[in-house]
Design a protein around this nucleic acid. Structure first.
Lengths: 207, 207
DNA sequence: TGATATTATGACCTTAGAGTCACATGGAGG
DNA sequence: CCTCCATGTGACTCTAAGGTCATAATATCA
């Protein structure tokens, strides 16, 4: 957590630091990002930086936390409207809102991609235990779906959860390099339909 | 390319260097890998290293090339037996032989994962243009399949090729963390069947 | 205004990386 | 035995990183 000093700062200053940090972490992976650059771009002295944050990781975790809060709010707006309880409906809502979020916040998306591409050691360092809550959540939904019979049981839930998360990353990465008017997909709705369709018809029970 | 000096070396010395380099690059990404460590582990002097290679990238590219050659030979053994010309048969052969290769050569697999996780800048630096030959190859096969009607045409070939490559990476990464006797999959054949099945039933034409 | 607590500063430290270079070593041919 | 050239060497440079610290500036309040 940032030090109290950081929160005592004026909103302008805090926002400036956050904005510069976002730019830095969206351009460079955690290890390649540089406090020197951040300090230079904010215009604050290096010593000041260390009055605000314990170290580079402290700042990075704080930035991730800010993004996560925004994203959770964003996705909940979509998923809270659902009532069917169907796994695929829920997955699709999560997916398309996740993509919408990434499109709305390309800088956040880039940071997410960097994070998911980090090697194990670095990921472990960044979020000690509390990670994979997302993955576990998906896994539990899959297990439930398998019990109910809406998802085939001859593939391990573990593996499906893993694949779904990877596809999510892949989608974000793919979209990053595309503009929507130059390609097949007219909007992200259509795009997320495609991918959910791919998952669904690949893993649903054959009735 | 390594300098002539390197190829003048005794086979023992060359193999030693290659072996140490393989270990280094399978443990660290390109940027985190260290010539100092490599030099220390080989027992050669740092000056000698630069008699053999232009720089770190030169060594890295050489190692990748060695791996690629082995892998191509390996996969061709499987795919050359095929005669059906069916996209999915071919894909499955590529897939399962790719997985078999990764299991046979875990060190190579780790290097491959690191490589595919590099950011764009680094990837661009590593293999200037000649990259994505794999991806393009898959894409052309998909386009062909779409013309013939064996693959649905309402998803862009670009995207499918991208997804297939990502799934390939995901599989390798997933397998890395699993031992085969503690989990659902008894052998990699079954595993690659699952994933091809997932792709196939997701993208094949509904006849 | 003067005393005290908070914040700001940048020169400086340590560490580690890639890459260099003047010099040492050793074997092959005259 | 001596010369010559390929090979071997490690101390060295340069650069850039993260992080520290004594000191200066500023704000707070009596």
């Amino acid at each position: 957590m940032p030090k109290q000093t950081f929160f005592n700062l004026s909103e302008d200053k805090r926002n400036n630091i956050k904005s510069v940090a976002l730019d830095e972490f969206s351009e460079y992976s955690f290890s390649k990002s540089s406090i020197n650059r951040i300090v230079e771009n904010t215009g604050i002295a290096k010593g000041s930086f260390y009055q605000y944050f314990e170290d580079k990781l402290d700042l990075y975790r704080y930035i991730l936390q800010c993004i996560a809060e925004e994203k959770i709010n964003y996705i909940q707006k979509y998923t809270s409207e659902l009532s069917s309880g169907d796994f695929f409906d829920y997955l699709k809502a999560t997916y398309s809102s996740g993509i919408a979020f990434a499109i709305d916040h390309p800088v956040y998306a880039k940071i997410g991609i960097f994070l998911l591409k980090e090697d194990e050691r670095t990921q472990q360092m960044i979020y000690g235990d509390l990670m994979t809550t997302g993955e576990n959540f998906v896994k539990n939904m899959i297990l439930e779906g398998q019990e109910k019979g809406s998802i085939r049981q001859d593939i391990s839930a573990d593996f499906i959860a893993f694949i779904i998360n990877k596809l999510n990353l892949a989608s974000t990465e793919y979209l990053k390099s595309k503009t929507f008017d130059d390609d097949f997909y007219k909007d992200y709705e259509e795009f997320s339909n495609s991918i959910i369709d791919l998952i669904k018809n690949g893993i649903k029970s054959v009735l």
